[in-house]
Design a protein around this nucleic acid. Structure first.
Length: 599
RNA sequence: GCUCCGUUAGCUCAGCUGGAUAGAGCAACUGCCUUCUAAGCAGUGGGUCUCAGGUUCGAAUCCUGAACGGAGCGCCA
């Protein structure tokens, strides 16, 4: 209905101009404030503009609304599209779209792969679309992925999918932590305790690596000599010492294999481009910042002091660009990354929008880095860089999610448990219903449902707030959960199995029942929702929509017979079933969730 | 201490950027299966939108202040 909305908005703006020529000068007052009706009783859209206009024109809002309607009704195009508008409450205008228009919208959408969501096109002055970068997941080498990576990975993937679906070239970048002090620590430690791991492939497995890392961290915190040795290793690494580089690449490979298992399980594509990639560019970042006069040396470190950044002691807090020992910090890497990503090809990625999916705790860091990039003039006029923050994953006690023994939850364990619980649930149901299914079926359904539940639970929440993780809730068969949505699709597949032709023609469709119109109106909202999510980067809006669509469909399914209806109702209803299935499948796909025919 | 974020039903959360009587889901209670999968549907009860001011035709939404909770804050990322 996005197109209808746009047409209406234009018509109403025109009508306003004609009805109130005297209001034209005062800016903004001719905005119709057209929006989707807040309740079904109010029709499809409502105009709120009459209320705001009352201030400018000295008439009551209801009188103004009357004049707007009079003007609108002179327009035959408007009349073709809408029923006569009604004035309600203090001066709202309620607008209902004519049923034949709704029907023809359904026909247009039927068998349209994009389901009426338009593809983006390049600007007039450019031949090609510029890529959008989604920077997400970003685990650290030599550590296992843990629950802290869950949200970034899931949310980032969904946002990338939505942008891709709109037609944007998307670079899904995995900015893995493969550089810096942690590596110094690890290599320095391994040199003394397990030197073989630094020269031989596959000499250490990821579990041991994690243990070594912990030991190294402890040494680093307690032993000053070890600190110095670690920093030495970092400097060697950054200077490209061949032995250190070899050791480094062995460690990275080991971790990479482990990450890939998780990404495969989650069905997520990512292009690895770690921090190390930007190493050759760091020196120029420092040099250019120095040239621009932003850099100040403080206690031997090269820093930038920004307005509004104040530390614990109340003194201005620096952002450190180069440490006293010559090493670089993550701010430096992030600055180098911004430059590279926004630089035109082939020197850079030529991106027009860069999206960082990280926890909200890094908001200050990004605010600082973005401000430096802006002051250094590294962000072209037409480009956007955005930090997309999300809240903490908490346990059911409201505290940061931990295992019973108080350790960080490994992502692999968490996903396995979701799948395991989905499986137990499925087996119990099969027993209760005395159904028999193959082992393959059980494995496939449990995996799909388990992963879907984890993803959907995360995505369906407004990402900015903390999120309370609960297996029981996310796997529940009722309510706003993945299993509920998947079940709606299974019901439609059931209709098809029982002989419903979900591939019939939509030429002669006809509707009469309330529940049909409710479903039609819900289906037609899809395009607006996708575009809104693309702009706001809030996938929970899409989840919310899909949940509502399922509720409307289930009401329809409960109250309206499909297979037993006479023609043309039967075919018309089958068209609605198919369109519902496609909308759900596509919607879930944009969330990175796979669907099922039976469950 | 400073900065950022949050506070909506017993619980978990929406609330589309200022609109009509604040909405879902869980939990509780009442109905509905010889019927396309009841993993569903229909219904009932449940609210000082943390508090106090302000802005205006109109505030959960915007501004100021307070309380409570969370996160971050100099050479880790």
């Amino acid at each position: 209905m996005r197109v209808i909305y746009q047409v209406l908005e234009k018509q109403i703006t025109n009508a306003l101009g004609k009805a109130f020529p005297e209001a034209k000068e005062s800016q903004g007052s001719l905005n119709p404030h057209l929006m989707r009706a807040t309740k079904p009783e109010f029709g499809d859209f409502q105009i709120n503009g009459a209320l705001a206009l009352a201030k400018v024109i000295k008439k009551t809002p209801r009188k103004i609304a009357e004049d707007i309607i009079k003007e609108l009704q002179k327009n035959s195009e408007f009349q073709k599209l809408c029923l006569p508008p009604e004035i309600a409450g203090p001066g709202f205008i309620n607008i209902s779209i004519r049923e034949d228009c709704l029907t023809s919208e359904i026909q247009k959408r039927y068998r349209d792969k994009q389901l009426a969501v338009p593809l983006v096109k390049p600007n007039n002055d450019k031949k090609e679309l510029e890529p959008i970068i989604v920077d997400f997941s970003s685990p650290n080498i030599a550590k296992e992925m843990h629950v802290g990576h869950l949200r970034s990975t899931i949310i980032g993937d969904s946002i990338a999918r939505i942008l891709e679906f709109r037609g944007h070239p998307v670079l899904r970048l995995n900015h893995v932590g493969d550089w810096g002090t942690q590596f110094g620590m690890l290599i320095a430690h391994l040199k003394s305790v397990a030197p073989k791991t630094l020269t031989t492939a596959n000499a250490v497995d990821i579990g041991d690596l994690v243990t070594f890392y912990r030991q190294a961290k402890r040494c680093f915190d307690e032993d000053e000599d070890f600190q110095a040795a670690s920093r030495d290793e970092v400097v060697k690494l950054q200077k490209g010492d061949p032995k250190t580089l070899k050791a480094w690449s062995l460690l990275c490979n080991q971790s990479r294999k482990e990450f890939q298992k998780i990404y495969d399980l989650l069905d997520i594509q990512l292009e690895e481009r770690g921090e190390s990639f930007y190493n050759p560019l760091l020196k120029k970042v420092v040099d250019d910042l120095a040239k621009s006069g932003l850099l100040i040396t403080d206690n031997g470190a090269k820093c930038i002091f920004l307005e509004g950044f104040i530390g614990k002691d109340g003194k201005p807090m620096p952002i450190i660009i180069q440490k006293t020992d010559g090493g670089y910090n993550y701010a430096t890497t992030d600055l180098a990354a911004i430059r590279y990503r926004l630089n035109p090809k082939p020197e850079g990625d030529g991106a027009c929008r860069v999206i960082y999916i990280t926890d909200a705790g890094q908001a200050n860091h990004f605010a600082g880095v973005f401000q430096i990039a802006k002051e250094a003039n590294w962000i072209p006029e037409h480009c956007r860089i955005e930090h997309v923050p999300f809240g903490l994953v908490q346990g059911e006690d409201g505290k940061k999610l931990k295992t019973r023994s108080g350790e960080t939850v490994r992502l692999k364990d968490l996903l396995d448990e979701a799948i395991h619980r989905a499986k137990q649930d499925l087996i119990r149901r099969l027993r209760e219903e005395t159904r028999k299914e193959s082992d393959d079926f059980i494995e496939h359904v449990s995996k799909t449902v388990g992963i879907a539940a984890v993803k959907y639970a995360d995505l369906s929440q407004n990402r900015t707030t903390n999120y309370q993780f609960s297996f029981n809730r996310m796997l529940s068969l009722q309510g706003n959960t993945a299993p509920y949505l998947l079940y709606a699709l299974v019901r439609i597949a059931g209709i098809s199995r029982k002989g419903g032709d979900l591939d019939s023609e939509a030429n002669d469709i006809e509707f009469s029942e309330n529940q049909e119109w409710n479903l039609i109106r819900e289906l037609l909202k899809f395009d607006e929702i996708v575009i809104e999510v693309e702009e706001e980067l809030l996938p929970n809006r899409l989840c919310n929509y899909l949940f509502e669509l399922c509720q409307v469909f289930n009401r329809f399914y409960d109250q309206i017979p499909v297979l037993k209806a006479k023609e043309p109702s039967k075919s018309s209803r089958l068209v609605l079933c198919r369109l519902t299935a496609e909308t759900l499948k596509l919607g879930l796909n944009l969330l990175g969730i796979q669907t099922l025919e039976r469950m």
